[in-house]
Amino acid sequence: MATWSHLLFQDSASPTMEQMIFFHDHTMIILTLITTLVVYMMMNTMYNSFTNRVLLEGQEIETFWTIIPALMLIFIALPSLRLLYLMDEINNPALTVKTIGHQWYWSYEYSDFSSIEFDSYMIPSSENLPSSFRLLDVDNRTILPMNTQIRMMITAGDVIHAWTVPALGMKIDAIPGRLNQSSIMINRPGLFFGQCSEICGANHSFMPIVVESVNTSSFIKWMNSMVE
């Protein structure tokens, strides 16, 4: 989760997020190089003595500064497309979890093996324990098995919401009447926090998401305890 003075991304908990951080870093390197070059050239223009002020054309340099930016764009576009299609991939999921956004809570349904349904409300500040995270903890966490391909089905019951977990690289709109699908693979255990990311009314800020990633046997144990 994000903590004080946290400026960059959260640590990734899924291969998708890992790739997104790599892509971000790659793009930022190119961006920094371009910005540095432009600043240098602006400085240079300001401080030089205009020895070439009657220069009207320069075929070589024009060819050069047309091709180089085109190449740079390709070097950004290709990794971007690769990531886009990787995120779209559905890798033979082992589990389907349905998430339904409501005003103002999330409800979850696990219907593969037995029907498990629960609502996940934020714990109000007045009931917070010293150990809980204000405006971020929920009464029923979304338990998910790690190292498993999970298919998330996301929809909403009333208005548009968005199911978001930054550490997993997830942000999917929950739209009434439409079922959106995304797949996640969590590669470590832990608690991953997120918040509704589509303004959905008065308590938009107060419907957080907590994903608890556990190992498979604990997950099955939890499922059994929910069925009984």
Partner: peptide, 28 residues
Amino acid sequence: MSTSIMSNVEALSTAPFDARFPNQNQTR
């Protein structure tokens, strides 16, 4: 469904990928 089914790994399966619906929109 009973608890014993869930402890059986074979039963731990979900709907497979369907080539008719390769998109994010799974409503159909």
